[in-house]
Amino acid sequence: MKKNAISPDPGYYATYINLVPDVDLKTALDESLQTLNALDAAALEPLGNYAYEPGKWTLKNVLQHITDTERVFSFRALLFARKDPQMPPGMEQDDYASNAETDDRSVAEILAELKAVRNATIMQFNNFSAAALLRVGMSWKTELSVLALGFAIAGHQAHHLNILREKYLQPNSNMKVSS
């Protein structure tokens, strides 16, 4: 199912969804995994504990944040797809980041975890029927569909890889993060 089938309007989540082309969800998630597979963990390792200014997350925190957020979005999608009426819990991203304990982990390890989560996400969304993809639920104050959450996962990654390119890599070297 393509992005243009998203209904109702996903509110804030459109910030991420709009970074993904109007392709089917399977393609969007597969391409996002290809982007992750193209990352060179060894080249990123020297910047792993780098934050571009005081109070900002390190490169490793950003990668872990993508993983943590994907788990949360995937859980919300599962609740909605299975018609679970409960409101999913919120997520305070800064608390997650400050408690992620990434300093002693390698970039390669964090990327491997992200790829494993992405593979699980792809399997989850590939097994949702068209009807399940169109089911909606409430996430905080926003009503959104399972389909919107799938595209938000791909777009959230694109958003943060853009930040890595602009704030972490360009000021430090000619390292590349492909989109």
Rank of each mutant, 00 (worst) to 15 (best):
A97E: 09
R105T: 11
N18L: 14
V23S: 04
A130Q: 13
Y50L: 06
R135M: 15
A28G: 02
K60D: 02
P88K: 08
N127D: 06
E70K: 00
A38T: 13
A81C: 10
V117H: 07
L144S: 05
E70G: 06
Q124A: 15
Y50R: 01
T142Q: 02
I66S: 00
S145R: 04
F128P: 05
M87S: 10
Y52G: 01
N37W: 09
F73S: 12
D84E: 14
L59A: 04
L59G: 06
D95E: 04
P21V: 11
I110A: 04
L79V: 09
D9Y: 13
S74K: 03
E101N: 10
L111I: 03
T67Y: 11
T69F: 07
L25Y: 06
N37T: 08
L111C: 01
T67H: 11
V107H: 00
G11R: 11
M138A: 09
P85L: 05
L144Y: 10
Q64C: 03
D103L: 12
T142Y: 01
A51I: 00
P8S: 11
A77C: 07
L63G: 02
A14I: 06
I66H: 00
L79E: 03
T27C: 08
K83A: 14
T15D: 08
N119E: 14
T27Y: 05
N126L: 05
L78K: 15
R82K: 14
Q124Y: 03
Q124S: 15
R105A: 14
G90E: 03
T142M: 05
